[in-house]
Design a binder for these strands. Structure first.
Length: 161
DNA sequence: TTCGTGATACCC
DNA sequence: GGTATCACGAAC
C-alpha cells in the first residue's frame, strides 16, 4: 500500500499549546522527544489512531501529523480495511488514514529511515500547497501550521482557504 | 448538528 | 481513587 501525502499539520512541543509535548514529557509522547525520523502513533478519542513523524533533534519535541493521503497502490486493500468503496475518503483524515494503512501502536517509535513496513519517499504532489489554521485546536490558532494540497479531493473535510 | 468512545493526565 | 479533556468520525 502506498499513497501521496496531501495534508499535514505541524506540532512543535514547547510553546505550542496544541502539542502533546506542551506540558512536558510523558510516557505517551516520549517519542516526540527523541530524534527525528521516527513514527509517533497515538490512540485518541476512544477509537482513532493518528500517525505522526518526529522532526528536530533528540530532546526537542516536534512532529508532523499526517492528516490525509491520496491512495495510489493497494487501494482495494485499503477499501477493505476501511469498509468503504469511497475512494476519495479512504485516507482523508488522521483516523481514516491509519485505519486504511492498518497503522497501530505496533508502529509507535518505528524508525522510518530503516523500517521496511513504514517509510517515505521523496517527491511532491502536483498543485499548490496552501496553509491554514489547524483543525480541532483551541489554542495556538495564530500558527497556520496545517498544510494541504489545494483543491485535492483527498484532503479531509473542511478546507478553509 | 450530535454522540460514541476510551486512553491519558491531572486532581484529589 | 475519580473525572474532564481530547490533534475524530459517522450518522443524522
Amino acid at each position: 500500500m502506498s499513497g501521496v501525502v496531501v495534508e499535514t499539520e505541524a506540532y512543535r512541543g514547547l510553546n505550542d499549546p496544541a502539542s502533546h509535548a506542551y506540558r512536558g514529557k510523558t510516557s505517551r509522547n516520549r517519542v516526540m522527544f527523541g530524534p527525528a525520523g521516527h513514527a509517533y502513533v497515538y490512540f485518541t478519542m476512544g477509537m482513532h489512531y493518528c500517525l505522526n513523524v518526529t522532526t528536530e533533534s533528540d530532546g526537542s519535541p516536534a512532529a508532523v501529523l499526517l492528516r490525509a493521503v491520496q491512495p495510489t497502490e493497494g487501494i482495494e486493500e485499503m477499501a477493505a480495511n476501511r469498509g468503504t468503496q469511497d475512494k476519495g475518503r479512504l485516507a482523508s483524515g488522521p483516523g481514516n488514514l491509519t485505519k486504511a494503512f492498518k497503522i497501530d501502536r505496533n508502529l509507535n517509535g518505528e524508525d522510518i529511515t530503516k523500517s521496511d513496513s513504514l517509510y517515505f519517499e521523496s517527491g511532491r504532489a502536483e498543485g499548490a500547497i496552501r496553509m491554514s489554521t489547524r483543525v480541532g485546536v483551541s489554542h495556538g490558532k495564530e500558527r497556520k501550521w496545517r498544510y494541504f494540497l489545494a483543491g485535492s479531493p483527498y484532503v479531509s473535510k473542511g478546507r478553509p482557504s
